[in-house]
Amino acid sequence: MGNRMIKYLLRRLAVGFITLLGIVVLVFFSSRLTGSPIEAMYPDGLEPGQLELFNAKYGFDKSYADQFVIYLKNLLHGDFGESIRERRDVRAILTARSLETLRLGVWAFALSVTCGISLGVCIALNRESFAVSIANNVMALLFSIPNFIIAIFLMLLFSFKLKILPSQGGGSALHYIMPVACFSLGPTISIAWYVKNGILETISQNYIRTAVAKGLGKARTIIGYAFRNALIPVITQVGMVIVDIVTGSLVIETVFSWPGVGYTLVNAVLDRDFPVVQGIILFLAGIVIALNFLLEILCMMVDPRINREAAA
């Protein structure tokens, strides 16, 4: 990796950092536009003088600018603050809840990648069969349905009607089935499409025709030659699966009451628990920015052409 490449990556890193700072500013001030977290804690109203006491305790009696400076100072020391609702460190909440999301996310990621790639190759191999044309339509239909609709449908069928799967929480192996299925459905389909399209694009190339002419056979040519070259867009898409899981966690975890980051964020927004909202959004944004950065490096390593373009 040359000097120009290192410079390019450092520039990308700086852009990522500025983006993160922008998010901190945006989330800090926009969350405060929603109203007081103390009033959200007491929907029936507060006693005379109680709001002022709470504001003094949590520093909400200071100006927004002062609050922001204090927040930024603490953030630079790795202190995300303390949850107003849960009365504990936001870092402890993040650690516990992100592990819960990871439990689901790893299964969803594994399922999406393995099923997506397998399905994509299968479709490419049998693209002219009747079964594949039906499968393509079914996939298009499933892809267009929002995952919370699918989640509710699965819950009604497997929990309410058939009574074979638990409907909420994360107590056992059975609890994983429906949320993982919902998480991985969309990414599986999109990976399958990318793999299929990549392979179909590659097999029209001259070197593939040469390989087939040599008598290697259709399947062996596709898996041995076409698949490798179709990988680059798939790598990007696989990275996007993680982003899908991160963003999808807000909906899926809420529907299944799964105690992960998404569920916590939704509740924190409803409760106006500013430190938790700020902490989780910063954490999620950090993941997405870091992921994009890593994907860029990965793509450069896999395809030297991208490397050259970036350096230029």
């Binding site: 990871l102 439990r103 790893v106 299964w107 990621f109 594994a110 990648v113 056992s172 898996i223 698949f227």
Partner: peptide
């Protein structure tokens, strides 16, 4: 044959190990 592809093999194995490590199934 498709699954015997080394790339997919590695993905499956590493994901399965990670998932198993992360998922401590409590009582059902």
């Amino acid at each position: 044959r498709i699954c015997s592809n080394r790339v997919i093999d590695r993905v499956i194995v590493s994901m399965a190990i990670l998932a198993a490590l992360l998922t401590v199934f409590p009582q059902t």
